[in-house]
């Protein structure tokens, strides 16, 4: 589980804790995979509970949704670089960007 800024949640992230609204009702259940609408909803709501601290929420690390997103981003990266993969300097840049993508998903 990791705590991230609400502004930084992405499609495919999976909630690691319930989100309870101000009137003490469960707004979103643990395990929900976030899509654009849910993210908008989270951003709109003013919530207080254990799953929501200030501007942060808790999401699962290495969730299945993330796996798909990582796979997609890495495949797009490979496509962007496919014509210049023979160049050492360009391969170096590709590796740097690959590391940044993985780090963005909490991988090192």
């Amino acid at each position: 589980m990791k705590k991230i800024l609400i502004e930084n949640v992405k499609k495919g992230d999976v909630l690691a804790k319930d989100i309870i609204s101000g009137n003490n009702l469960t707004a979103l259940k643990k395990g929900v995979t976030l899509d654009e609408n849910i993210i908008k909803r989270i951003k709109r709501l003013t919530l207080i509970n254990s799953g929501f601290e200030g501007n942060y929420i808790f999401i699962e690390e290495n969730s299945a949704g993330n796996e798909k997103n990582i796979e997609k981003e890495l495949s797009l990266l490979a496509k962007r670089f496919e014509d210049i993969d023979g160049d050492g300097f360009m391969r170096g840049i590709k590796e740097i960007i690959k590391s940044a993508i993985l780090k963005n998903y909490g991988r090192n």
Binding site: N8, I96, I97, A100
Partner: peptide
């Protein structure tokens, strides 16, 4: 060199999450 590019990418890439503002 590559090290310079690495420093830039590592610093700026995480800000892609902020574009939605």
């Amino acid at each position: 060199d590559l090290n310079f590019i690495k420093n830039i990418v590592e610093e700026v890439y995480p800000f892609k999450n902020e574009l939605s503002i």
